[in-house]
Structures are given as structure tokens and as C-alpha cells.
């Protein structure tokens, strides 16, 4: 991804952002509220259209594609706030995630093996689940597409710490088989614990970049808040 500018209405949210990701890598993006993290993910997913060359995926320009076309290429998003389809049951939410029809290890059975509770609740309305269970559905729904790159937007937001721990415990099993991931997170320590590299965004620009285990706390907080 090179020189990404993204706009949110008339408001420019990202300024010439350059970042890249290798196959199979887990990248963490951290930054304060309004730093442009969600805009970044929405741009990659195709919900915000851009110049074709602004985003390249496996060598081809995808910046100007529609979200459904991007999905077909193997990029899936677990959106902030889960955003399940309230009119669809748990299982229907998962099935619709598999609509793009890409081949791979993930299927209804595989998702149910990962989150057994969902199998019990498969015919319930997605709105009747707890927040943690809804997050499982949202993750399962993205996995059903068998993506090459999965984008997680604030998956710990609004969940109890114990649920967050469970979900993060499941993450390595999810992204283990060569799937790349970009993790947007406000919980810095969680983000660092599962990622190999980290970018810190501040007001739409990259303020810090490095290997997750090498970054110093104080460097992060400087890059995060923009204070010395």
C-alpha cells in the first residue's frame, strides 16, 4: 500500500499513508481515537474508494474496487461493533460470510469447532446473543470467506476482559495457516502480543513503525499521543 489518502466526506482522514504487509504476517495498527485506523480498514475493504494504485493486493491494484469485488479477492473485515445482520440467524450470518465461495479450510463445521457455543445457538436471532458471542459470529462470518487477509477492527471494544482474553487466545489458531491479518486495536498490549509488527497512526499519518517485540513503551506512548 503506498501513498494512501482517504477522505471521509470532505474531511481528509488519512494523509499519504504508506504501509505494507507480507503474506502470513500479522500487523497491528494502534493509535488514539480519530487517528484514522477505521478509515484505513474501510479503505482496504473497499468501503471507501480510492485511486486504483493506492492499494495493491498481491501485486494488483485494488484501491478503486467496490467492496464486494475486494471481498472476492480474499479480503475480509470483522467490523467495529460487530455489525451482525439482525434479520439473520446466527447460522445465516455465517453462511452469508461464505457467499464469496473461496476454497479453504473454513466452513460452518470449522467455525463451530472453533466456537462450539455458536453451534448451540445456530438458529437464534443474532441479536439475542451476548456481546462476546456476537463477536465470535462476526469473526466466524469473516472466516467463512476463507480470506487471505483478514481485517479486525477493535474486536475487544465493549467486551468483558475475560471474553477478550478468550478471543485473543483463539486468534493464533485463526491466523496460523498462512492467513495475513491486520489488527486495529486500542488495547496496545493485546495488539502487541499477537502481532509481529506494529504501525502507530497519529492524525492520519504513520508516527511509528517497528517489530512488535522491539518497541519501547515510551516510544509508543509518544507516537500514540503525540507528546514528548
Amino acid at each position: 500500500m503506498t501513498g494512501l489518502d482517504a477522505f471521509y466526506g470532505d474531511f481528509q482522514a488519512l494523509y499519504g499513508l504508506d504501509l505494507h504487509l507480507d503474506a502470513g504476517e500479522v500487523l497491528a495498527i494502534i493509535g488514539a481515537n480519530g487517528a484514522g485506523k477505521t478509515t484505513l480498514l474501510r479503505s482496504i475493504a473497499g468501503l471507501i474508494r480510492n485511486r486504483p494504485e493506492a492499494i495493491r493486493f498481491r501485486g494488483s491494484p485494488v484501491g478503486a474496487l467496490r467492496a464486494d469485488q475486494v471481498a472476492g479477492l480474499g479480503i475480509a473485515l470483522v467490523p467495529e461493533g460487530r455489525q451482525l445482520f439482525p434479520s439473520l440467524s446466527v447460522e445465516e450470518n455465517l453462511i452469508i460470510g461464505g457467499r464469496v465461495g473461496r476454497k479453504g479450510p473454513w466452513s460452518l463445521d470449522a467455525v463451530y469447532r472453533l466456537f462450539p457455543i455458536l453451534k448451540e445457538r445456530r438458529n437464534q436471532a443474532s441479536t439475542s446473543l451476548s456481546g462476546g458471542q456476537q463477536q465470535m459470529v462476526a469473526i466466524g462470518r469473516a472466516l467463512m470467506a476463507n480470506p487471505d487477509l483478514i481485517l479486525f477492527d477493535e474486536i475487544s471494544l465493549g467486551l468483558a476482559p475475560i471474553i477478550i482474553r478468550d478471543i485473543y487466545a483463539a486468534l493464533p489458531g485463526i491466523v496460523g495457516d498462512g492467513m495475513s491479518a491486520i489488527l486495529v486495536e486500542q488495547d496496545i498490549s493485546k495488539a502487541l502480543s499477537v502481532s509481529s509488527r506494529v504501525y502507530c497512526l497519529q492524525e492520519g499519518r504513520v508516527s511509528l513503525e517497528g517489530a512488535s517485540d522491539a518497541l519501547l513503551r515510551e516510544a509508543i506512548s509518544r507516537a500514540y499521543f503525540g507528546i514528548a
Binding site: A67, P86, S87, L88, A145
Partner: peptide, 17 residues
Amino acid sequence: RAFRAVSDNQDIAQIMG
């Protein structure tokens, strides 16, 4: 399912392909 999904949330439905 597609009808209901798009009716619920157009953006997310689009992301589902």
C-alpha cells in the same frame, strides 16, 4: 438472505461479497 442482509446493513452486506 441477501435481501435481508442488504436491507439490514448495505455496507457490511457489500463486504460479504
